[in-house]
């Protein structure tokens, strides 16, 4: 319950404060969102599986964001930024889908 409240509080703070994101960081925002979604759904699944671990969660979120940002950054430097972004989105997207499917099986037994 507390973690869900923390998520919502963070969301509201972001929406209300509306901090200006520097232009150079803007290409990384969508990737960060996808990586964060992946970490959240992975965590929910782990909770339902009964194997949640706080350290693993924090590290998986941080490493997801860092690696995704790194891939996009290197891609931008090599001139294949959009292709590599697509790769990141595809891989994380498949993971999100599978995790959500697993959560659905846990919750609805269907």
């Amino acid at each position: 319950m507390i973690p869900a409240i923390a998520l919502i509080v963070g969301l509201i703070i972001g929406l209300v404060l509306d901090p200006s994101v520097p232009v150079w960081m803007q290409p990384y925002l969508p990737i960060a969102v996808i990586a964060a979604l992946d970490a959240v759904f992975g965590a929910i699944r782990a909770v339902l599986d009964g194997i949640f671990d706080d350290k693993v969660f924090v590290i998986s979120f941080l490493s997801n964001v860092v690696v995704a940002a790194l891939i996009v950054f290197i891609g931008d430097q090599l001139g294949v930024g959009s292709q590599l972004s697509t790769g990141v989105v595809v891989v994380l997207g498949i993971r999100i889908f599978s995790n959500v499917a697993s959560i659905r099986r846990h919750l609805f037994h269907a």
Binding site: L11, G14, L29, A36, V40, D54, K55, V58
Partner: peptide
């Protein structure tokens, strides 16, 4: 083996994740 989903670390991380969502929604 009991999960500990409510530790301070998790709460802070989720706060950060919420922040990322909020800021992205605003900016994008």
């Amino acid at each position: 083996t009991a999960p500990r989903p409510s530790s301070g670390l998790v709460v802070v991380t989720l706060l950060v994740i919420g922040l990322v969502f909020g800021v992205s929604a605003r900016t994008l």
